[in-house]
């Protein structure tokens, strides 16, 4: 197996989001909150969204964990703000494709800063770190959709 390069994993942009996360803190008027943990490693986030008229009006998170998990959720919260719920879900799906090594997804401009995480796909044991925020997002979307049906 080819040796994956560390430099493809620890890009400056990732370290920068890790050190100075965007949208970190509590969202007092959230409409949904998902607590997601990765029991095997202790990564943890609480994703808080305010959803209005089928759009994500605001997104924040609190959490702790490795650089990959925290940078990914920091990048994600920046990108989903203002998006319709199905757009946010599509972003999550696109990100998963990138984590499975899809090179087109890694070049997709709609992915914004998230493209810096493309190298994670070469480190299979770290993929679940990157997905933690998106798992929380999809769970939040599911709960919101379920709530509307009642």
């Amino acid at each position: 197996m080819e040796t994956p390069q560390l430099s493809s994993l620890y890009q400056q942009l990732i370290l920068e989001h890790y050190r100075s996360p965007r949208n970190k803190g509590d969202l007092p008027d959230k409409t949904v909150e998902i607590h997601m943990r990765n029991p095997s490693c202790g990564d943890e986030i609480r994703l808080q969204l305010r959803i209005e008229d089928g759009r994500i009006a605001e997104a924040k998170f609190v959490g702790s964990g490795c650089s990959i998990s925290q940078a990914a959720v920091s990048m994600m919260t920046g990108l989903i703000k203002g998006r319709a719920l199905d757009e946010a879900d599509a972003l999550a799906e696109r990100f998963k494709e990138m984590m499975h090594g899809d090179e087109a997804a890694a070049k997709d401009r709609s992915m914004g800063d998230l493209r810096a995480l493309a190298g994670v796909s070469k480190f299979p044991v770290r993929v679940k770190c990157a997905l933690l925020g998106f798992d929380a997002l999809q769970e939040a979307l599911k709960q919101t959709a379920g709530g509307e049906e009642h």
């Binding site: 040796t3 994956p4 560390l6 994993l9 620890y10 890790y18 050190r19 490693c41 990564d43 964990g65 490795c66 650089s67 990959i68 480190f123 044991v125 770290r126 770190c129």
Partner: peptide
Amino acid sequence: GDAHPHDISTILDS
């Protein structure tokens, strides 16, 4: 420091 143990382990593994 602020290097998470998982990041340490990935780097050591490399």
